[in-house]
């Protein structure tokens, strides 16, 4: 079920809840970057946090990883409060939006030091596994500045995973990354989900978010406007489309009296008619109402609604 988050979301701080954000607000002086954001993540899901630039996505992730202090509200990671003790940090793996340079150290040294920060003295096996999986093994002796943009991104991901976190946060991991690498990164994210890791990510690629995310939340001006299962939101806030291609035997264009009465008609392009199909509308009723004989119809297609429509509908509401 999707949730209209203008109503209060029941929040929990159980050890079974990977992430519980409870009424989190963040101010920078007078500017309100986050406004009473509330939601929970479910174990093993991929959650997409969407929103235009400046909506507050990075601020929220920064508060979850304790890089920023929330002005009010609480965040719990597996029942532990963020900012109190170090346990939440052990449970989280975080891929920041911007690549970290790490100066003079090579890839292997960076991952070894990062493992040490999580208390893992000898982590060679895991590091090798990650380097192999992320195609960085041949580059393990290179410094960050010697890596390509895609390799740097993969290194950031490897770094966030050295301690096998239970909650994996990615802040726009595919920004400025080519399509091939984007696809392989998303494949890897699905692999992590299948291993039981809970994933929260932000992205501007809505088509990919639609494919990947079990649930999404849409932030606008620091307010979590809408949240729910991706498919439910698409059903609720977008329209399926019915596309009918005529073969020239039937009259076409808006001048046809049958079409003038069609409220659901979205557009006419030559012999192509495009209809909106709001939830509950039967395709047959539209076709019947046109009064065309079947031999005048060349092709009929339906197109599903998209997350992009949902996104625009929420932002424009």
């Amino acid at each position: 079920m999707n949730q209209d988050v203008s109503k209060s979301v029941p929040v929990q701080k159980s050890a079974d809840i990977p992430l519980s954000v409870q009424g989190v607000s963040k101010y920078y002086g007078e500017f309100k970057a986050l406004d009473k954001v509330e939601f929970n993540l479910e174990k093993g899901e991929i959650f997409g946090l969407l929103g235009p630039n400046g909506a507050g996505k990075t601020t929220l992730i920064s508060a979850i990883v304790d890089l920023e202090k929330a002005s009010s509200g609480d965040i719990f990671v597996f029942g532990e409060k963020v900012g109190r003790g170090l346990q939440t940090k052990r449970d989280i793996g975080f891929v920041p939006q911007e690549v970290i340079n790490h100066g003079y150290f090579n890839v292997e040294e960076i991952l070894t030091f990062h493992s040490g920060f999580y208390g893992i003295r000898n982590n060679k096996k895991r590091i090798e596994e990650l380097l192999q999986r992320l195609a960085l093994w041949e580059h393990k002796n290179k410094k960050v500045k010697q890596l390509s943009g895609g390799m740097k991104r993969r290194l950031m991901i490897a770094k966030a995973l050295v301690h096998t976190p239970k909650l994996f946060l990615l802040d726009e991991p595919t920004a400025g990354v080519d399509i091939e690498l984007r696809n392989s990164l998303w494949e890897f994210v699905v692999e992590l989900k299948n291993q039981g890791t809970t994933v929260l990510l932000t992205t501007h690629y809505l088509e990919e978010a639609q494919e990947l995310c079990d649930r999404v939340g849409i932030l606008r001006n620091g307010v979590l406007e809408k949240m729910g299962h991706t498919k439910d939101l698409i059903d609720e806030l977008s329209n399926r489309k019915l596309v009918i291609d005529l073969n020239g035997k039937a009259p076409s264009g808006f001048s046809h009296p049958c079409l003038e009465k069609q409220e659901k008609l979205e557009g006419v392009d030559g012999d192509r008619l495009v209809f909106k199909l709001p939830k509950g509308t039967e395709m047959g009723s539209i076709i019947n109402s046109l009064g065309f004989s079947l031999d005048s119809i060349k092709d009929i297609q339906t197109e599903e609604g998209t997350l992009e429509e949902v996104f625009l509908s929420v932002l424009n509401s």
């Binding site: 990883v65 170090l86 052990r90 989280i92 975080f94 911007e98 970290i100 790490h102 990062h114």
Partner: peptide, 18 residues
């Protein structure tokens, strides 16, 4: 200072170190 510049310093805030 170089950590502030490169972003390395953010890591220190994120990892479990006192």
């Amino acid at each position: 200072i170089s950590g502030k510049f490169s972003g390395d310093l953010e890591d220190l805030k994120i990892v479990p170190i006192h």
